[in-house]
């Protein structure tokens, strides 16, 4: 986001809802996400007129229609490019990019890569439901091996892409992972994403009740969540389990993270790790944790701000203007070799 005065008078969650009827399926995880976004907008005091939601194509990309702000429902995969242009024209805007696993990682993979690398000042929410829902359930780049779908009747044979690893690899400076049903954590992440200067990437696991129901069950259900997730908090140890009975520490022999029992034999005080979001190596290790033997890392995996693209663009313009006498095209046209007849 960009630093600006909050909305005055302050707005409530519901004030950010547009007059359009929401058309997601009953029970869709998107409802929880839009609620969290509206809560975040209210909490940070976002101004409607300065807020722009840009999306591509897919269920998630209908999002802008349901928020009472400026919105641009673009074409498949290209939201990052539209958002980049919008920010180049007006760097004072608060831009949110809404995409999905198909839109952002398949057809739009190139644009997602580059908006992250360039570090345009925006929030990028990737709704990951592991399926192409709008086109009726084909497998997506994040579908797991073996997943059956109309286009993979015998099961998916290509290995899945892991969004957080992709984002860190692309050079993103803020990478977080959230789950639709974990409202409190989601709002907290979105708030921090909003305040981050530069591209903030948030993968949000989102349950598709129609085509991929239960995708998040193994790590997000009430019964499994505490054992299956390490919820990251800055400066805190990487503990998980109902009573924090397990934790992650560094395995120096393997340059890896390993699970140990708190108070157990391996709890020897060596190689303990406190979560440091500015540590990119740790971020990679956390993003790579894989169920079922390891917990899934949720929360802010990486956060290490660096200058954003549009700010650098305007810095160059200012610098060029300082070093130049030219102000108008008349000055340009008359410069160089000319002759008069």
């Amino acid at each position: 986001m960009n630093i600006q005065d909050p909305a005055n008078p302050p707005l409530k969650d519901k004030d950010y809802a547009s007059n359009q009827e929401v058309r997601w399926c009953a029970g869709c995880g998107d409802y929880a996400i839009i609620k969290a976004v509206q809560k975040t907008l209210a909490a940070v005091g976002a101004k409607k007129e300065n807020t722009v939601f840009v999306s591509g194509i897919g269920c998630s990309s209908r999002f802008p229609y349901y928020i009472d702000s400026y919105g641009f429902h673009g074409i498949h995969g290209r939201a990052p490019a539209i958002a980049s242009g919008t920010l180049l024209a007006n760097p004072d805007l608060d831009v949110w990019v809404i995409t999905g696993d198909g839109d952002g990682l398949s057809i739009g993979g190139n644009h997602l890569l580059h908006i992250l690398r360039r570090n345009f000042n925006c929030q990028i929410l990737l709704f990951n439901n592991g399926t192409y829902a709008l086109t009726k359930g084909q497998y997506s780049p994040t579908s797991l091996k073996g997943q059956r779908s109309p286009s993979s009747p015998m099961g998916v044979i290509d290995p899945p892409l892991e969004p957080a690893q992709f984002a860190i690899g692309a050079g993103a400076r803020f990478v977080a992972r959230a789950i639709d049903t974990q409202q409190k954590q989601l709002v907290d992440i979105l708030t921090q994403a909003y305040h981050h200067q530069g591209a903030a990437f948030v993968e949000i696991f989102q349950n598709c009740v129609v085509f991929n129901d239960g995708m998040t069950e193994s790590f997000a259900a009430k019964s499994t969540a505490s054992d299956a997730q390490v919820m990251l908090e800055e400066g805190k140890p990487l503990t998980f389990g109902k009573n924090g009975e397990r934790a992650l520490k560094c395995d120096p022999g393997k340059l890896n993270l390993k699970v140990y029992d708190v108070g157990g034999e391996e709890d020897d005080g060596h190689c303990e790790i406190l979560h440091d979001p500015s540590n990119r190596t740790l971020a990679f290790l956390l993003a790579q944790l894989e169920l079922p033997d390891q917990p899934l890392a949720t929360g802010i995996i990486y956060n290490d701000p660096s200058p954003s693209y549009e700010v650098e663009t305007y810095k160059q313009i200012e610098q060029a203007q300082e070093n130049s006498q030219r102000r108008r095209m008349n000055d340009v046209l008359k410069q160089g070799f000319t002759w008069t007849i």
């Binding site: 490019a81 242009g85 180049l88 663009t313």
Partner: peptide
Amino acid sequence: KDLGVVTFQAEDEIAAMCSAIGCSYGGA
């Protein structure tokens, strides 16, 4: 640049067109 012109070398032709649309949407 000294005239305030913003140029953007996009990642591909599609992004070039889409970011040009974004520029116009943003008021440039």
